[in-house]
Design a protein around this nucleic acid. Structure first.
Length: 284
DNA sequence: ACATCCACCTGCTCGC
DNA sequence: TGCGAGCAGGTGGATG
């Protein structure tokens, strides 16, 4: 479940269903799911068992559960990860990778991940005011962070010698934006993703970042974007922002603004979608 | 230091 | 019906 709105939907589900509960049992069912936890599965289980979850937090596409110790459970969903609140003892999902059972009789928290690009680890919290888990100190603030500074993000992007879409996807410049919302933001801002950042005005970069913030806020209000059952909230339900996408996945369909056929172009072993009229390719 | 790119996985769809 | 190719919402580490 990848980009910011989808991860925020999950965070809210964790805040509602998991915060305040004490972990009584942890099971790791696939070693790859905890590969970022270098001390290994036994250590992860030992550090988590008996802890009470005190908060569910997020930065960009990372989320974590704070506990009543200085440890937090850091999670990244990768391309296909899910955190599901499932009835205790109910049938295992096909790609169930880890399970947290709680001391009360309520539902379990399950990490399910088809492609295993995601994972869990237990991390020390940093002491600074942001209280980030140590491994994500390099992740920039996302546009929904109350302390997000648009001017700081604009400067960071313009300082980079690269193309605009690459910069939007760089989580150390601004976080939370992935392939869908980058394309949607570029369409709203009428910019092609191949525009060199160095030649863009501050106003232009500000425009595309504002568009990203808006489109992600709108997507969140719709429960996120979901094309299939892989992208669901903690209760297994899909969001429906896919109905509101203007370019992503819309190849050969008419642009909502000008009617031109939306084009699909290869980009980093994936795809970019844009309007050939509203978003002309830079020359060269 | 900084920019680029591919390996890491499973499963689905499409064309032959 | 089978089989290979191509594709999928992300990222860190290797490489230049």
């Amino acid at each position: 479940m990848p980009e910011l709105p989808e991860v925020e939907v999950v965070r809210r589900g964790l805040a509602e269903h998991v915060v305040g509960r004490r972990v009584s049992e942890v099971a790791v069912l696939h070693p790859r799911a905890i590969r970022r936890h270098l001390p290994g599965a036994h250590d992860l289980v030992a550090r988590l068992t008996g802890r009470t979850v005190t908060a569910a937090r997020r930065r960009g596409k990372y989320l974590w559960l704070e506990t009543d110790s200085s440890d937090a459970v850091l999670a990244h969903l990768g391309m296909s990860g899910q955190l599901l609140v499932s009835d205790r003892g109910s049938a295992a999902q096909k790609h169930l990778r880890a399970r947290l059972v709680f001391a009360d009789a309520g539902p379990e928290l399950r990490f399910v991940d088809q492609r295993t690009f995601g994972g869990l680890s237990v991390e020390q919290m940093r002491g600074d005011p942001d209280r980030l888990p140590a491994p994500i100190a390099h992740i920039a603030r996302d546009p929904m962070d109350p302390r997000f500074d648009l001017d700081v993000a604009v400067s960071a992007i313009r300082r980079r010698r690269t193309e605009l879409k690459r910069a939007l996807l760089d989580q150390t410049l601004v976080s939370g934006i992935g392939n869908i919302y980058a394309d949607e933001a570029l369409w709203r801002a009428r910019l092609h993703g191949a525009r060199p950042t160095a030649t863009l005005s501050r106003a232009a970069v500000r425009g595309v970042l504002s568009a990203a913030s808006e489109v992600m806020t709108e997507a969140l209000a719709q429960g996120g974007t979901s094309f299939d059952a892989l992208y669901v909230n903690v209760n297994g339900n899909s969001g429906y922002f896919d109905r509101s996408l203007n370019v992503y996945g819309q190849a050969d369909r008419p642009c909502a603004r000008c009617g031109s056929s939306i084009r699909r172009e290869p980009f980093m072993n994936r795809s970019s979608y844009s309007c050939p009229t509203c978003q002309p390719r830079p020359r060269g």
